[in-house]
């Protein structure tokens, strides 16, 4: 092995150099836009627009963040998103893990029929309007619950968790527990769950990130601004430019416009920081989850 490495031809060496060049370029392409947003959020907007901010902040300022602090909408959105994420993750975990365990048991009569019942929903749904009308008919429109309950079943997550249970829990375990007079529910809550912390972490994190980042359901089902999640609030600031209506003309307007632009950089940072902070700790779990899911394809 060692010898073959030493003898590796010059062609192979070229290949290695090429690889490192490609991946170094990849690093820059991925990281530079993110870095630019960070430095731009701390820089004097005039320096940004004249191209002086490229590697480090210029004319350090916190005006963008200060302006952001005054926007009460953002903090309401933050609070709402934290609540939606917490409650949504708990509900999602409960519903999906329970179903997944049940479906992982080979002695479940009607297992195949249930599986079909679940999988059909991956390919078909009623579409936007029928779902919208159903939500209205359940009186869930414009309520807290519409954000956490109706769409909490994820068949993909169920399949991943089911695969995990099938491969990691030996059938003998259940047989032994049964002989000792342990029922299904007790077995699930006292033995299966403590043994399955890894999969619970993976699925919980998936649901939490999904909740944190989602805006579609809120766009369709939420009308009351007090219930807006963070993503919908920042959409209004970043994309629909709602602030610019109040800006007049002249010197003051120019300053206001610049602060508004600075604030857009700051908004990106403030809304993404929580996920980026937990990301390094959780990314290996995400990885694992994709692998478990991939086994069953």
């Amino acid at each position: 092995m060692v010898k073959s490495k030493i003898k590796s031809s010059s062609k192979d060496k070229m290949f290695t150099i090429l690889l490192y060049a490609i991946f170094s370029l990849g690093f820059i392409i991925i990281l530079y836009p993110l870095w630019f947003i960070i430095i731009a959020s701390f820089s004097d907007p005039a320096a940004v627009s004249t191209g002086k901010v490229l590697l480090l902040p210029k004319g350090f300022t916190l005006d963008g963040y200060k302006a952001l602090l005054k926007e009460s909408d953002i903090w309401i959105g933050y609070r709402n998103t934290i609540l939606y994420t917490l409650v949504g993750t708990l509900i999602g975990l409960f519903v999906n893990i329970c179903a997944a365990y049940s479906l992982s048991r080979k002695d479940l009569v009607g297992r195949k029929a249930f599986m079909t019942f679940f999988i059909i929903t991956m390919f078909f749904n009623g579409g936007l309007i029928p779902t919208f009308l159903t939500i209205k008919s359940f009186n869930l429109y414009d309520t807290f619950w519409v954000m956490v309950l109706p769409f909490s079943v994820s068949v993909y997550n169920i399949i991943v968790a089911r695969t995990f249970f099938e491969s990691s829990l030996p059938t003998d375990l259940w047989n032994a527990a049964q002989i000792d007079g342990c029922g299904n529910l007790r077995f699930f809550f006292q033995i299966v769950l403590p043994l399955s912390k890894a999969i619970i972490a993976v699925i919980g994190l998936w649901i939490a990130v999904g909740q944190w980042n989602s805006y579609f359901n809120a766009l369709i089902y939420i009308k009351n601004p007090d219930l807006y999640p963070l993503q919908l609030v920042i959409r209004n600031i970043l994309i629909t430019n709602q602030m610019q209506g109040s800006i007049g003309t002249g010197e003051a307007a120019l300053i206001a416009l610049r602060t508004a632009n600075l604030m857009r950089y700051a908004v990106i940072i403030v809304s993404t920081v929580p996920i980026m902070c937990v990301y390094p700790f959780i990314q290996k779990y995400f990885n694992k989850g994709v692998m478990i899911g991939a086994v069953k394809g």
């Binding site: 329970c98 048991r105 929903t121 749904n125 029928p130 159903t134 939500i135 079943v153 299904n184």
Partner: peptide, 23 residues
Amino acid sequence: GLYLLLIPAVILLICFTYIPMYG
């Protein structure tokens, strides 16, 4: 007990996926 564990997911799917399909 296993059917009890399935019930929440089944009910949610019936209410919010299968009923809209009919819609």
